[in-house]
Protein backbone atom coordinates (compact mmCIF):
# COMPACT_ATOMS: atom_id res chain seq x y z
CA UNK A 1 0.00 0.00 0.00
CA UNK A 2 2.62 2.47 1.06
CA UNK A 3 4.83 1.29 -1.76
CA UNK A 4 2.06 1.98 -4.23
CA UNK A 5 1.62 5.43 -2.78
CA UNK A 6 5.26 6.24 -3.17
CA UNK A 7 5.23 5.09 -6.79
CA UNK A 8 2.26 7.31 -7.50
CA UNK A 9 4.07 10.11 -5.69
CA UNK A 10 7.22 9.60 -7.74
CA UNK A 11 5.24 9.58 -10.96
CA UNK A 12 3.54 12.78 -9.95
CA UNK A 13 6.91 14.30 -9.15
CA UNK A 14 8.30 13.39 -12.55
CA UNK A 15 5.24 14.74 -14.34
CA UNK A 16 5.55 17.95 -12.36
CA UNK A 17 9.20 18.24 -13.32
CA UNK A 18 8.45 17.68 -16.99
CA UNK A 19 5.69 20.30 -16.99
CA UNK A 20 7.96 22.64 -15.14
CA UNK A 21 10.79 22.13 -17.61
CA UNK A 22 8.45 22.56 -20.55
CA UNK A 23 7.07 25.82 -19.18
CA UNK A 24 10.59 27.01 -18.48
CA UNK A 25 11.63 26.39 -22.07
CA UNK A 26 8.55 28.30 -23.22
CA UNK A 27 9.54 31.32 -21.11
CA UNK A 28 13.05 31.19 -22.55
CA UNK A 29 11.72 31.05 -26.12
CA UNK A 30 9.57 34.13 -25.49
CA UNK A 31 12.57 35.91 -24.02
CA UNK A 32 14.55 35.02 -27.15
CA UNK A 33 11.82 36.37 -29.40
CA UNK A 34 11.81 39.63 -27.46
CA UNK A 35 15.55 40.06 -27.38
CA UNK A 36 17.04 38.43 -30.52
CA UNK A 37 15.95 41.18 -32.95
CA UNK A 38 17.93 43.62 -30.81
CA UNK A 39 20.95 41.33 -30.69
CA UNK A 40 20.78 41.06 -34.47
CA UNK A 41 20.55 44.88 -34.69
CA UNK A 42 23.66 45.29 -32.54
CA UNK A 43 25.56 42.72 -34.60
CA UNK A 44 24.77 44.27 -37.95
CA UNK A 45 25.67 47.70 -36.63
CA UNK A 46 29.23 46.36 -36.45
CA UNK A 47 29.31 44.84 -39.93
CA UNK A 48 29.74 46.11 -43.45
CA UNK A 49 27.23 45.21 -46.14
CA UNK A 50 29.43 42.37 -47.34
CA UNK A 51 29.23 40.69 -43.93
CA UNK A 52 25.55 41.52 -43.40
CA UNK A 53 24.59 39.82 -46.65
CA UNK A 54 26.96 36.85 -46.55
CA UNK A 55 27.44 35.84 -42.92
CA UNK A 56 24.66 34.09 -40.99
CA UNK A 57 22.49 36.75 -39.27
CA UNK A 58 23.69 36.04 -35.74
CA UNK A 59 27.35 35.49 -36.65
CA UNK A 60 29.86 37.77 -35.01
CA UNK A 61 31.61 40.22 -37.34
CA UNK A 62 35.17 39.09 -38.11
CA UNK A 63 36.48 42.52 -37.31
CA UNK A 64 33.88 44.73 -35.58
CA UNK A 65 33.40 47.95 -37.53
CA UNK A 66 33.19 50.43 -34.67
CA UNK A 67 33.95 52.95 -37.38
CA UNK A 68 30.26 52.77 -38.37
CA UNK A 69 29.45 54.62 -35.17
CA UNK A 70 32.12 57.23 -35.73
CA UNK A 71 30.91 57.78 -39.29
CA UNK A 72 27.25 58.33 -38.46
CA UNK A 73 28.07 60.48 -35.46
CA UNK A 74 30.42 62.77 -37.42
CA UNK A 75 28.96 62.76 -40.92
CA UNK A 76 25.25 62.97 -40.23
CA UNK A 77 23.42 65.24 -37.85
CA UNK A 78 23.04 62.49 -35.27
CA UNK A 79 25.05 64.47 -32.72
CA UNK A 80 22.72 67.46 -33.12
CA UNK A 81 19.59 65.30 -32.92
CA UNK A 82 20.96 63.57 -29.86
CA UNK A 83 21.62 66.86 -28.09
CA UNK A 84 18.15 68.13 -29.05
CA UNK A 85 16.60 64.97 -27.61
CA UNK A 86 18.51 65.49 -24.38
CA UNK A 87 17.44 69.14 -24.12
CA UNK A 88 13.79 68.59 -25.04
CA UNK A 89 13.43 65.46 -22.91
CA UNK A 90 15.21 67.03 -19.94
CA UNK A 91 13.20 70.28 -19.99
CA UNK A 92 9.87 68.52 -20.44
CA UNK A 93 10.62 66.01 -17.67
CA UNK A 94 11.59 68.75 -15.19
CA UNK A 95 8.57 70.87 -16.04
CA UNK A 96 6.14 67.94 -15.93
CA UNK A 97 7.38 66.54 -12.65
CA UNK A 98 7.41 69.94 -10.93
CA UNK A 99 3.97 71.03 -12.18
CA UNK A 100 2.47 67.62 -11.45
CA UNK A 101 3.88 67.69 -7.90
CA UNK A 102 2.32 71.14 -7.34
CA UNK A 103 -1.06 69.95 -8.57
CA UNK A 104 -1.00 66.67 -6.68
CA UNK A 105 -0.03 68.50 -3.50
CA UNK A 106 -2.86 71.01 -3.91
CA UNK A 107 -5.38 68.29 -4.71
CA UNK A 108 -4.47 65.87 -1.93
CA UNK A 109 -3.27 68.13 0.88
CA UNK A 110 -5.08 71.45 0.59
CA UNK A 111 -8.74 72.11 1.28
CA UNK A 112 -10.87 73.41 -1.56
CA UNK A 113 -14.15 72.51 -3.13
CA UNK A 114 -13.21 72.03 -6.77
CA UNK A 115 -10.33 69.62 -6.16
CA UNK A 116 -12.23 66.53 -7.39
CA UNK A 117 -13.32 68.33 -10.53
CA UNK A 118 -9.78 69.46 -11.33
CA UNK A 119 -8.47 65.96 -10.70
CA UNK A 120 -11.18 64.65 -13.04
CA UNK A 121 -10.02 67.01 -15.78
CA UNK A 122 -6.51 65.62 -15.54
CA UNK A 123 -7.70 62.01 -15.48
CA UNK A 124 -9.97 62.38 -18.52
CA UNK A 125 -6.92 63.83 -20.29
CA UNK A 126 -5.47 60.29 -20.19
CA UNK A 127 -8.03 59.10 -22.72
CA UNK A 128 -7.71 61.84 -25.36
CA UNK A 129 -6.12 60.50 -28.56
CA UNK A 130 -3.24 62.64 -29.79
CA UNK A 131 -4.61 62.71 -33.33
CA UNK A 132 -7.79 64.46 -32.18
CA UNK A 133 -5.71 67.45 -31.07
CA UNK A 134 -3.10 67.55 -33.81
CA UNK A 135 -4.69 69.93 -36.33
CA UNK A 136 -5.72 72.61 -33.80
CA UNK A 137 -2.31 72.37 -32.10
CA UNK A 138 -0.59 72.75 -35.46
CA UNK A 139 -2.70 75.82 -36.17
CA UNK A 140 -2.14 77.21 -32.67
CA UNK A 141 1.65 76.97 -32.82
CA UNK A 142 1.59 78.46 -36.31
CA UNK A 143 -0.39 81.46 -35.09
CA UNK A 144 1.68 82.18 -31.98
CA UNK A 145 4.97 81.73 -33.84
CA UNK A 146 6.15 78.58 -32.07
CA UNK A 147 5.98 76.37 -35.15
CA UNK A 148 9.38 74.79 -35.73
CA UNK A 149 10.47 75.88 -32.25
CA UNK A 150 11.52 73.42 -29.52
CA UNK A 151 9.10 75.05 -27.05
CA UNK A 152 6.18 73.68 -29.05
CA UNK A 153 7.15 70.08 -28.33
CA UNK A 154 8.35 70.75 -24.77
CA UNK A 155 4.98 72.30 -23.85
CA UNK A 156 2.99 69.61 -25.68
CA UNK A 157 4.93 66.77 -24.00
CA UNK A 158 4.36 68.39 -20.64
CA UNK A 159 0.62 68.78 -21.18
CA UNK A 160 0.14 65.23 -22.43
CA UNK A 161 2.27 63.65 -19.69
CA UNK A 162 0.79 65.58 -16.77
CA UNK A 163 -2.24 63.26 -16.36
CA UNK A 164 -0.16 60.08 -16.13
CA UNK A 165 2.41 61.73 -13.86
CA UNK A 166 -0.28 63.01 -11.50
CA UNK A 167 -1.89 59.60 -11.44
CA UNK A 168 1.35 57.90 -10.37
CA UNK A 169 2.10 60.62 -7.77
CA UNK A 170 -1.42 60.53 -6.34
CA UNK A 171 -1.16 57.12 -4.68
CA UNK A 172 2.03 58.10 -2.90
CA UNK A 173 0.71 61.49 -1.72
CA UNK A 174 -2.30 59.84 -0.08
CA UNK A 175 0.05 57.83 2.11
CA UNK A 176 1.93 60.82 3.54
CA UNK A 177 0.78 61.28 7.16
CA UNK A 178 -1.05 64.53 7.88
CA UNK A 179 0.97 64.95 11.08
CA UNK A 180 3.96 65.83 8.96
CA UNK A 181 2.29 68.98 7.66
CA UNK A 182 0.60 69.82 10.93
CA UNK A 183 3.90 69.81 12.75
CA UNK A 184 5.50 71.95 10.06
CA UNK A 185 2.73 74.51 10.21
CA UNK A 186 2.81 74.61 14.01
CA UNK A 187 6.45 75.55 13.68
CA UNK A 188 5.39 78.49 11.52
CA UNK A 189 6.47 76.98 8.23
CA UNK A 190 4.90 78.52 5.09
CA UNK A 191 3.17 76.33 2.51
CA UNK A 192 5.91 76.93 -0.07
CA UNK A 193 8.62 76.06 2.39
CA UNK A 194 6.74 72.96 3.42
CA UNK A 195 6.31 71.89 -0.18
CA UNK A 196 9.93 72.37 -1.18
CA UNK A 197 11.60 71.37 2.09
CA UNK A 198 9.37 68.55 3.28
CA UNK A 199 6.98 67.22 0.64
CA UNK A 200 9.34 67.10 -2.34
CA UNK A 201 12.11 65.28 -0.41
CA UNK A 202 9.59 62.84 1.07
CA UNK A 203 8.16 62.05 -2.36
CA UNK A 204 11.59 61.78 -4.01
CA UNK A 205 11.31 58.04 -4.78
CA UNK A 206 8.00 58.32 -6.63
CA UNK A 207 9.14 61.55 -8.30
CA UNK A 208 12.13 59.61 -9.62
CA UNK A 209 9.81 56.91 -10.93
CA UNK A 210 7.65 59.43 -12.79
CA UNK A 211 10.76 61.18 -14.10
CA UNK A 212 12.14 58.02 -15.68
CA UNK A 213 8.77 57.11 -17.21
CA UNK A 214 8.47 60.62 -18.61
CA UNK A 215 11.99 60.41 -19.94
CA UNK A 216 11.23 57.23 -21.86
CA UNK A 217 8.01 58.63 -23.36
CA UNK A 218 9.58 61.94 -24.38
CA UNK A 219 12.73 60.39 -25.76
CA UNK A 220 10.66 58.12 -28.00
CA UNK A 221 7.94 60.56 -29.03
CA UNK A 222 7.47 60.82 -32.76
CA UNK A 223 4.16 62.34 -33.97
CA UNK A 224 4.50 65.78 -32.39
CA UNK A 225 8.10 66.32 -33.52
CA UNK A 226 7.23 65.07 -36.96
CA UNK A 227 4.36 67.57 -37.18
CA UNK A 228 5.74 70.68 -35.45
CA UNK A 229 9.48 70.61 -36.17
CA UNK A 230 10.79 70.92 -39.71
CA UNK A 231 14.36 72.19 -39.49
CA UNK A 232 17.29 69.89 -38.86
CA UNK A 233 18.72 72.02 -36.07
CA UNK A 234 15.68 71.36 -33.83
CA UNK A 235 14.80 67.77 -34.76
CA UNK A 236 15.07 65.14 -32.07
CA UNK A 237 16.43 61.63 -32.61
CA UNK A 238 13.21 59.87 -33.60
CA UNK A 239 12.44 62.09 -36.56
CA UNK A 240 16.13 62.78 -37.20
CA UNK A 241 17.08 59.13 -37.65
CA UNK A 242 13.99 58.58 -39.77
CA UNK A 243 15.28 61.17 -42.26
CA UNK A 244 18.89 60.07 -41.95
CA UNK A 245 18.05 56.45 -42.68
CA UNK A 246 16.02 57.56 -45.67
CA UNK A 247 19.24 58.90 -47.18
CA UNK A 248 21.50 55.99 -46.24
CA UNK A 249 19.04 53.18 -46.80
CA UNK A 250 21.63 51.00 -48.54
CA UNK A 251 24.29 51.04 -45.81
CA UNK A 252 23.16 48.53 -43.17
CA UNK A 253 26.06 49.21 -40.82
CA UNK A 254 25.28 52.93 -40.76
CA UNK A 255 21.59 52.28 -40.15
CA UNK A 256 22.32 49.78 -37.41
CA UNK A 257 24.72 52.04 -35.56
CA UNK A 258 22.29 54.98 -35.84
CA UNK A 259 19.52 52.91 -34.31
CA UNK A 260 21.77 51.62 -31.55
CA UNK A 261 22.84 55.17 -30.67
CA UNK A 262 19.20 56.21 -30.49
CA UNK A 263 18.12 53.41 -28.15
CA UNK A 264 21.27 53.22 -26.03
CA UNK A 265 20.32 55.89 -23.43
CA UNK A 266 17.02 54.13 -22.72
CA UNK A 267 18.67 50.71 -22.50
CA UNK A 268 21.30 52.06 -20.10
CA UNK A 269 18.60 53.70 -17.98
CA UNK A 270 16.77 50.38 -17.94
CA UNK A 271 19.81 48.45 -16.78
CA UNK A 272 20.27 50.85 -13.86
CA UNK A 273 16.65 51.69 -13.02
CA UNK A 274 14.62 48.67 -14.16
CA UNK A 275 12.74 48.42 -10.86
CA UNK A 276 11.52 52.02 -10.98
CA UNK A 277 10.54 51.63 -14.61
CA UNK A 278 8.56 48.47 -13.96
CA UNK A 279 6.92 50.09 -10.94
CA UNK A 280 6.05 53.23 -12.88
CA UNK A 281 4.53 51.30 -15.76
CA UNK A 282 2.47 49.15 -13.41
CA UNK A 283 1.13 51.95 -11.25
CA UNK A 284 0.59 54.17 -14.27
CA UNK A 285 -1.74 51.76 -15.99
CA UNK A 286 -3.49 49.72 -13.37
CA UNK A 287 -5.55 52.54 -11.96
CA UNK A 288 -6.49 53.75 -15.42
Amino acid sequence: MSQQNSIVGAEKGIRKKITHGFLYILLIIIAAVQILPLVWLFLFSLKDNQEVFNLPPLALPQDPKWGNYVTVWTEGNIGVYFLNSVIVTGSAVLLTVLLASFVTFAITRMNWKLNKLVLGLFMVGLMIPVHSTLIPLFNFYLNIGLMNHPLSIILTYTAFNLPLTIMILLGFYYTIPRELEEAAIMDGCSVHRMFFRIILPVTAPVVATTAIINMIYNWNEFVFVNTFISSDKYKTLTVGIQNFIGQYSADWGAIGSTLVISILPILLAFVVLSNSIVEGITSGSVKG
Binding site: L99, A100, I107, P136, L137, F140
Partner: peptide
Amino acid sequence: YTLPALMLILVLIYVPIVL
Protein backbone atom coordinates in the same frame (compact mmCIF):
# COMPACT_ATOMS: atom_id res chain seq x y z
CA TYR B 1 -0.08 75.50 -7.56
CA THR B 2 -2.79 74.30 -9.92
CA LEU B 3 -3.22 76.98 -12.57
CA PRO B 4 0.02 76.47 -14.55
CA ALA B 5 -0.67 72.77 -15.13
CA LEU B 6 -4.38 73.37 -15.59
CA MET B 7 -3.74 76.06 -18.20
CA LEU B 8 -1.44 73.70 -20.10
CA ILE B 9 -3.99 70.89 -20.36
CA LEU B 10 -6.82 73.30 -21.11
CA VAL B 11 -4.95 75.11 -23.87
CA LEU B 12 -3.13 72.10 -25.35
CA ILE B 13 -5.69 69.28 -24.84
CA TYR B 14 -9.20 70.51 -24.11
CA VAL B 15 -9.41 73.56 -26.37
CA PRO B 16 -7.94 71.55 -29.28
CA ILE B 17 -10.53 68.76 -29.00
CA VAL B 18 -13.30 71.36 -29.07
CA LEU B 19 -11.64 73.04 -32.06
